[in-house]
Write a protein that binds this DNA or RNA. Structure first.
Lengths: 135, 135
DNA sequence: AAATTATGCTATTGACCATAACACAGTGTC
DNA sequence: GACACTGTGTTATGGTCAATAGCATAATTT
């Protein structure tokens, strides 16, 4: 029973990625958040007043795919939208949004820890460097 | 415009994974193959007579999700199914299947090369080691 | 003024993953 | 032999996410 894909970096790449995502998504518990939502929240937190399209560019999410994400976040009352010039709508965290960031950050940290615990601090850091070179 | 996810290994992980997949899927050209199909083909090649469930276990694909994959491959005439004991069905490559493996391997190699070219031989190899430690 | 670009949005499609349930065959164990 | 248990193939269904095409509007550039 040989697995010929063991030799391929690409194989392990999707494997580890989905492993990390599973850990993160589980860490959200019954909050009903998915990882794209959390990523968007983090970007908004770091760039208050950012526009929906800019978030998409940063995260490589299509404009059209941003719509339901932002819609969900607004529905939950985690973000606030303020009309800017023209069609621009500046997005920021609402007070509830600020509050939820603790949970979100903890979840993403759980994913990081799951990886780091299997690699050690040094391995984790080299992995980070290598992956950054690719993306 | 700061991207707070730059610091997260998990972020780069899904990024690089989807980058690699894109390269691979493009390399299939108009063959109409998807990467799970190619992965299944490689496993069958390395383990003739293997069962559909075993492939799923090896690749972490649910039994139920194996059905359409195997169905597609059979429809293309790339695999052959031979009735075994009970409900067991042994799967092997057909002559056409053997022939197509060249293209499939080339595609997966293209993905590997895309990564390796950004990392160098040494970086590629350390990345391989690190990822194997996780999965 | 006209063309171009940016933004937000709708709608649709397709890939992939996940769960539940069913039917059937074998392998035990009592 | 009757029984539970496990493995296999299958159907059905829903959810998440990515990708494409197209539309309307507004700002910017020429």
């Amino acid at each position: 029973m040989r697995n010929p894909l063991e030799d391929l970096v690409g194989f392990h790449l999707v494997r580890t990625a989905s492993f990390g995502l599973r850990v993160v998504n589980e860490a959200y518990g019954d909050l009903g958040v998915r990882h794209p939502d959390a990523a968007v929240m983090m970007v908004i937190e770091a760039n208050p007043g950012i526009t929906q399209s800019s978030i998409g560019r940063m995260l490589k999410i299509q404009r059209s795919n941003m719509v339901p994400i932002i819609g969900r976040l607004a529905e939950r009352g985690w973000i606030e939208r303020e009309q800017g010039k023209g069609k621009r709508i500046g997005i920021s965290l609402s007070p509830e949004g600020v509050q939820i960031m603790g949970t979100l950050r903890a979840a993403s940290q759980a994913g990081e820890d799951a990886i780091a615990s299997r690699l050690g601090t040094e391995g984790y850091s080299t992995l980070h460097d290598l992956l950054r070179q690719i993306s």
